[in-house]
């Protein structure tokens, strides 16, 4: 069955089904993003535009935090680039499977390549089989998430002005990051990356222009790679 060529309709529907629970889970974040974007001072139109321009939840949350803090624009760009670098991983993993497609398809699927769409699609792509319609699966998953995300962000923008500041809703952004980071702390290198980034971010608060955030992110990555190497070499050394 897995090698058989399925029609594009079946693939696309399967993609939609696979993304459904993840898309449902993204609704609260879309709402919170919209509210935070308005609180940060983005115009409603810009807040909605960012959701389709950047189309990445964590980067969108980060943008609202950085804009609210008055971060210089170039540093906002640098931070967005740093946090979205992980998508290069997904791109590398899927490149082989999409190599036969034309430029239009590649551009469209790259635009729709989110954490969720990747997570939903990679299993399907790793099934063995001849060239087939699996790109329709990714299209279904990507488009399904895109629609749900845009609607929830727009709804959040509409709600934005009506939520009092005393609710401290901006904290929901930080809590979202905690919910993403904690499950990633699976081994010592990951803990080291978290600790180093936190230390540099807090110690560097006095630095101008929120430079501490980028410095901390880079310090965290270097710490992770360094500890990973140290763990490996201690394993390889005979006792």
């Amino acid at each position: 069955m897995s090698g058989a060529r399925r029609s594009w309709r079946i693939e696309m529907r399967a993609g939609l089904v696979a993304i459904a629970p993840l898309a449902l889970g993204s609704i609260p974040f879309g709402l919170i993003y919209g509210v935070l974007a308005i609180k940060a001072g983005l115009s409603p139109l810009l807040a909605i535009a960012v959701a389709s321009l950047v189309f990445a939840g964590s980067a969108q949350f980060m943008i609202t935090q950085l804009v609210a803090a008055g971060t210089p624009l170039l540093l906002i760009l640098g931070s967005v680039m740093t946090i979205n670098l992980r998508h290069a991983l997904y791109s590398a993993a899927l490149a082989r499977h999409l190599a036969h497609l034309g430029y239009g398809w590649k551009a469209l699927l790259a635009y729709l390549l989110t954490d969720e769409a990747y997570a939903a699609s990679i299993k399907r792509f790793d099934e063995t089989g001849a060239a087939d319609n699996r790109h329709w699966f990714l299209l279904g998953a990507g488009l399904g998430l895109w629609c749900v995300w845009q609607i929830s962000c727009i709804a959040g923008v509409a709600l934005g002005g009506r939520i009092p500041a005393a609710w401290s809703l901006d904290f929901a952004g930080t809590l979202t990051f905690i919910a993403i980071v904690v499950p990633l702390l699976r081994d010592r290198p990951a803990w080291a990356a978290m600790a180093a980034a936190g230390l540099v971010a807090v110690a560097g608060q006095a630095l101008p222009y929120k430079l501490a955030i980028m410095a901390a992110a880079i310090a965290g990555m270097l710490a992770g790679v360094a500890v990973e190497r140290a763990c490996k070499s201690s394993l390889e050394t005979p006792a």
Binding site: S79, T82, T174, M214, A216, G220
Partner: peptide
């Protein structure tokens, strides 16, 4: 590069979380 990328989410998000907590 792949090894480096693995730590991007942890490092970048931690850099945002800790200052907000403290």
């Amino acid at each position: 590069f792949i090894r480096f990328l693995r730590f991007v989410p942890v490092a970048a998000l931690s850099a945002l979380v800790w200052p907000d907590l403290l």
